[in-house]
Design a protein around this nucleic acid. Structure first.
Lengths: 347, 347
DNA sequence: TTGTAAGCGTTATCAT
DNA sequence: ATGATAACGCTTACAA
């Protein structure tokens, strides 16, 4: 056995409390869990020692004995600093807290290898459920074992690859198509597409599909010169400049995610090109702080998180039905920038 | 003992692998931990069974046996959806991941009671360290026991109350004073203060102190009529309107946090009052997307998180020196809005 | 009302 | 090179 030297000032255990109070461990456990048959006198004495020693029950030990699972849900997102994912995380946390579960969070940085590595630790941690915003290009076949063992898994914002699991997605195709149709309706025929990266990203593909669909429906030819991308604001700003400086520039831009849209706004402002119509995908706090306001296709990231968390909780409650995919609607919010007419002579 | 019915399809344990492979548990453990004296033949056989069963070592059990502490750091922030705190969290995660530690995150919603309750679960989870953005009005005396037992605790953005612990703060006073002095230098004497809530919040108090200090240094009288507040964008926007519609309105506004600044931008745009000078506290992505650009006192939320995490890691590595307070500098970023002259006839 | 002993899934000691 | 056994801190069946 292990005569491991306790680190100095080791935290007191239930046994320590028992010894100090002159009772058995069983009795301390009873007091702590508010079990009925305990004399008030013992209870008092035990609680006094608990206070005095600053005792904290060891949840790991408890969970192990009681269910051999950690009372926590694991969440993997690409980037905690991105307000979109932060809001998703917030929705998840809100829901699982009502069940007394904790949230173990990890960033994957959009890297499939890192995603797999963090998911593995979460699984080894014995989380009760897993919620995942998968990275582009990751393969989730390795999760099949967990599914078989009944671990609830939900994918958010992007679907799983290689495993049947619950998913909560926004209606990217429809939202993008509506945005572009909106621009067409306002007279635009040269509409730029500013996508995120990598191009294989699910949301990017769906939104691009929506863009093409709307243009085709309006019999507008797709011009590859009008397609560009940039995942961060800086890249997107540069791409925007490239677009508007083309020989045959677009009169409108559809910015296919939040960072791309911010990049476009920065670029258009700095270039004094507020004549270019703009619709973004995903709403943001300051959309109203522009003149004209920024029109967007609004998603509901909080609801994405809430719905995903509710799904896994239902599974924990015994829902054994087949894997479900919930698609959340998007909403076109017209604030002005998407309703600008084409600049004269360019449409 | 507990003849608790295993949940259907319970996950395989190390013992299961051992039985299937026809070896002892100790041997499986050896293989998994890459311990030296193991025959290639047994290793192969064991690994095959590990794969076949989809075995995941139970980290809870391991941690318990090995250190009786969870290989995780607990982080409590007011709100995951606020990009400021999201970025702080991102900084923390980045650092602790390099040590193979996980992040258990909880929102306190600026509520001291909830803060205490989530901190308590984190402690019971046996996290190796605690990082905290405390809520206004919370009292941390209950953490003294943990400090005594050697648990590393760091406070971010706001200092602890009632316990000596490491803290990482921004230089709020200095930053605010510089912002207001900057406005004074550009000719303003009627400068509004748009604070966050509650007024007892540390950052709010410090920034208000900086505001008063700069005005007093310039012999400008403090006008209570120019002090208002609003913690969320909506409230802040309403407060901004109240300010600029006063009989003797301010010619400049100092918005003392990120949400207040965004609220001010929204209100000023909608009211077509881009003549009012504005300096915000805390930078934001779209600051450059306005005409003129929004001048701000930039903090470094990521660095706040990184520094806090590094502090607790140093403690884990044995640093027993006294509680330290690190103050991070702020930077005045002039983009135009803070350099506007006072509107004619109003200064 | 309280205590004893077993056991959750690992790893450490000591054998062999 | 491998195994038997105890132990981490807690809860639970059973006994007293």
């Amino acid at each position: 056995m292990a005569p491991r030297p306790r680190p100095r000032a080791a935290r007191p255990t239930l046994k320590d409390v028992a010894r100090e109070a002159g009772v058995s461990a069983r009795t301390v456990s009873r007091v702590l869990n508010r079990e009925p048959r305990i004399s008030e006198r013992t209870r008092k004495r035990v609680m006094a020692k608990v206070e005095a020693l600053g005792f904290r029950p060891n949840l790991m030990a408890r969970n192990m004995r009681v269910g051999s699972r950690d009372a926590a849900v694991g969440l993997v997102i690409p980037d905690l600093a991105n307000p979109f994912f932060g809001t998703v995380a917030s929705g998840v946390e809100e829901v699982i807290r009502t069940r007394g579960l904790n949230l173990v969070i990890a960033s994957s940085d959009e890297d499939p290898d890192r995603e797999r590595s963090v998911v593995t630790t979460l699984l080894e941690r014995q989380v009760m459920a897993l919620i995942l915003v998968p990275s582009a290009g990751s393969d989730h076949r390795y999760l099949r074992h967990e599914r078989r063992h009944g671990l609830p898994i939900a994918f958010l914002d992007r679907p799983p690859a290689g495993v049947a699991a619950d998913a909560v997605l926004s209606d990217n195709f429809e939202g993008a198509a509506r945005a572009v149709a909106h621009l067409v309706r306002h007279g635009h025929r040269r509409i730029g597409f500013l996508g995120d990266e990598p191009a294989m990203l699910y949301t990017r593909r769906e939104r691009y599909r929506g863009y093409r669909h709307a243009l085709e429906a309006a019999s507008v030819e797709i011009d590859p010169e009008l397609i560009d991308h940039g995942h961060h604001e800086g890249d997107a700003a540069a791409a925007t400049i490239r677009l508007v400086e083309r020989e045959h520039p677009p009169t409108a831009i559809f910015a296919a995610n939040n960072l791309a849209c911010m990049g476009a706004l920065i670029a258009l402002t700095r270039a004094h090109r507020r004549d270019v119509a703009l619709v973004g995908f995903d709403d943001f706090t300051l959309a109203d702080a522009f003149e004209p306001g920024t029109s967007v296709v609004a998603q509901d990231p909080e609801r994405l998180g809430v719905t995903g968390a509710e799904l896994v909780l239902a599974r924990l409650d015994g829902d054994r039905s087949g894997a479900r995919t919930v698609v959340l609607p998007t909403e076109l919010v017209a604030r002005g920038s998407g309703e600008l007419p084409p600049a004269r002579g360019l449409s």
